[in-house]
């Protein structure tokens, strides 16, 4: 049996016996990424609605920037957040660097543009259908955004899941602001990078398996949510 094969075997064993260290890392990953996505959804969905329905100066610039920011390199986001949180930075007093909070901030910054840009498109589509009727009934724009958010809820799931997928998959941002500290800021992606370089393939591959399963689950959910959205759109 080759090294890789035996590593794969122990990786599978780690996953299915729910190894303590592995579970801790997965747990932190989920906590960080779910929190980041929650923040991104709370900011990104209303922002997408506002960009779709409101007319204000600078609106087009914001849209262009958001679309550009969808593809921001995670390391650049990590660096920017690092500079903000470092002791000399504007938010240095809070001492957040190398904590899960810093990682949540970095991933929120990374993912909010994705959620906002994708949900803006959902709002645009729904608004073209709803505009006449809602204006006719006397709904103001703020009210209309709330109405669309509710009626488009199943169509807004894929944008949020896309954000979640991106958050769980990135390494650069959490590595820089989290520091990959054992038992403190070690998440799946950073651990894979570290353990691979140390030659501990079993742990790396175990986490790799979990990440792939997670990615499959997210994509399956997107598919199911889109189907549900299409159905409710009859």
């Amino acid at each position: 049996m080759s090294d890789v094969e035996s590593a794969l075997l122990s990786a599978v064993r780690l996953v299915f016996t729910l190894d303590r260290d592995l579970a801790e890392i997965i747990g932190l990953s989920m906590r960080v990424s779910l929190s980041a996505v929650a923040v991104a959804a709370l900011i990104g969905v209303p922002l997408g609605g506002a960009l779709a329905l409101l007319r204000f100066p600078g609106r087009k610039t914001v849209i262009v920037l958001l679309n550009a920011f969808m593809g921001l390199p995670p390391v650049v986001v990590g660096l920017a957040v690092y500079l903000m949180l470092s002791r000399l930075g504007p938010m240095g007093v809070f001492g957040l660097l190398y904590s899960p909070a810093a990682m949540i901030i970095a991933q929120s910054v990374l993912v909010t543009p994705i959620v906002a840009a994708l949900s803006r498109q959902v709002f645009v589509d729904f608004w073209s259908e709803y505009e006449d009727q809602l204006r006719s009934l006397g709904a103001g724009r703020g009210r209309a955004i709330l109405t669309l958010a509710w009626d488009a809820r199943s169509s807004l799931v894929p944008p949020v899941l896309a954000g979640f997928g991106r958050a769980t998959a990135e390494v650069g941002a959490v590595m820089i602001v989290g520091g990959n500290i054992d038992h403190v800021t070690r998440v799946m992606t950073t651990t894979i990078a570290l353990e691979t370089s140390k030659g501990n393939l079993a742990m790396a591959m175990g986490l790799g398996i979990v990440l792939v399963l997670l990615s499959l689950a997210v994509n399956a959910s997107v598919f199911i949510a889109s189907e549900a959205a299409a159905k409710s759109g009859r």
Partner: peptide, 23 residues
């Protein structure tokens, strides 16, 4: 106004009628 193509909110019939009243 009632439009040529009725625009139904993705809700029940009752909730559709209630929407305008709430506004």
């Amino acid at each position: 106004m009632v439009f040529q193509r009725p625009m139904m909110l993705r809700r029940s019939v009752t909730a559709n009628i209630e929407y305008g009243l709430r506004l």
